[in-house]
Design a protein around this nucleic acid. Sequence first.
DNA 1: CTGTTAGCGCATTCAA
DNA 2: TTGAATGCGCTAACAG
Lengths: 340, 340
Amino acid sequence: MSPALSTKPRRVTLAEVACEAGVSQQTVSRVLNNKNEISETTRQRVLEVIERLHFHPSRTARGLASHKTLGIGLIVADITNPFFPPIARGAEDVARTAGYSLLLCNTNEDPAREADALRTLNSEMVDGIVLCGSRLSPGDVGALLAGSPPAVLVNRNYTGIGVGCVRADDAGGAMTQVRHLLNSGRRKIGFLSGPAASHSGRERVRGCAAGLEAAGLALDPALAVACHPSVDGGRKAAAALLSGHPDLDALYCYNDLVAVGALQTCARLGRRVPEDVAVVGCDDILLADMVVPALTTLRVDKEEIGKRAMHMMLLHLSGASDYERDVVIQPELVIRASAP
Amino acid sequence: MSPALSTKPRRVTLAEVACEAGVSQQTVSRVLNNKNEISETTRQRVLEVIERLHFHPSRTARGLASHKTLGIGLIVADITNPFFPPIARGAEDVARTAGYSLLLCNTNEDPAREADALRTLNSEMVDGIVLCGSRLSPGDVGALLAGSPPAVLVNRNYTGIGVGCVRADDAGGAMTQVRHLLNSGRRKIGFLSGPAASHSGRERVRGCAAGLEAAGLALDPALAVACHPSVDGGRKAAAALLSGHPDLDALYCYNDLVAVGALQTCARLGRRVPEDVAVVGCDDILLADMVVPALTTLRVDKEEIGKRAMHMMLLHLSGASDYERDVVIQPELVIRASAP
DNA sequence: CTGTTAGCGCATTCAA
DNA sequence: TTGAATGCGCTAACAG
């Protein structure tokens, strides 16, 4: 006996099942794929053999023969950003129900890595792509998506790129928030606008500008600073903004992480929130309700976004073509202590 | 011209590249796989054609021919639990660097779904599995892993199941925390011990018991209640515990989410933290430092766990066998206001 | 309803 | 250093 040479128990193949059941491979294949053109008795017999031999069809072989992988790629800017896990969860739920698996790609907010991820997924590994929080220009996305599997874009406006988009109404939401700030008497608002490359960031700034305009005001570009979408990014941007413009009485933040950073900077600088400075965030992550003061923010149903995006992808893959290609999820203003 | 019948640009194959370059398929394959048994001139010629034809090898075909998928499955209990995203990020980083993709499976804390995920990944879709936060019994895991791709278990003790384990020192960490509570004068500690099926939960309770014993005390089972590893789970468990035992002067919590729930319940019941009740959490998620009072907790390097687990997986896949099979990450006590 | 014949696009033998 | 043959495990297209 050779020691520990555990002969890897070779995989059971469809051919063996067919042989054992006394039918053709095709018949086994039909059972596997739930084709109804088969008699109940043979079906049962085949199923019995499949069970007995512990047969699992190889997805790889199926993929090669059918040109489907049953995999869908999910590209996110950063899975440790609380905005994305619910999206991933929603997307995975829907995908799994339909028999698809989710391939996760993290880009770490790096456009180059995002491009890489897109290219990797292009190697016929997936049937479709859900691209979240892209940091690439529409042009680059379009180019990278040419000849790639179909893609649904999350948080982009639909411009004919990909098979469709699912997004929160960023501009509308931001407008609502600015209106709220103005209604509560704020007049000089600073904007921590997030990654310059973020489409939703730009949309939000656009919404803010529209909100100001509606009140006869204008957005001063000097009061808008880009930042990394993290607590630390918020800390730094708030510090820069408040030191340059001590008379700001409100801070609009790209997301809740940034807003938390802004809160911390306000505390450090001795600015009371909301008395001196009101702070609003976006997304309504778990954290938003637990910091002090609790954040006024925009509640976005992130899991729903993930579900809708995946659902659109599956619709497309199933050959449908009469679906809504620009799904917009309406966020909801949640008023808490940071901006009452 | 038929309208919009966009002839799907058929994939370029290795055969075409070979033909175009005037070499055999084998030669192209060699270039693709960086075999060095090839002349520099042919290599360049082939590379040029690959470039020109935008050739991407099909992973599916490669997989079928080579019995490798270059995919690794990551099973997590809940990606929206802040404990897991850093693990996923670390694991994905390491995997991608080695050319592997990550297949994400969410089990939603459901053992049945976990078993399903394991079976799905068994369909030769992945070369390996990283199983995090399992809610299955060791026996079930062992059974499901039999005949499946190799697996690394995260947060389990190594018992010969799978190719190895990576885990935080749960028992040791819990002991440290209990010692800290005792040192600060606490004598009656309640335990919110997390999911009954969680291995790390049981380990932590074990560590707590050991910590008490070292001080000549015993863990009263009536003071340990299981709970869902979420804020809401913590709220409920704390309410149950505090109402039944009003004299508790400390709460040990399974993780930081549970601890936050406990804080909320304390606030609701008018128990001051830490004056009346000290609260300690575990994991040191972002939230821990931002709630009021800030949580005393155990810092666990989650990204490192993900990296180490994936690294072990890759080592195994590369044929190595002389690696450490039971990697233990030491957590660090972080003392904050909730239990000074 | 069932079987037969062909591949899917590559890597893995060999042999030259 | 290169090439030819063979097959991975399954589905597709056609027969019967």
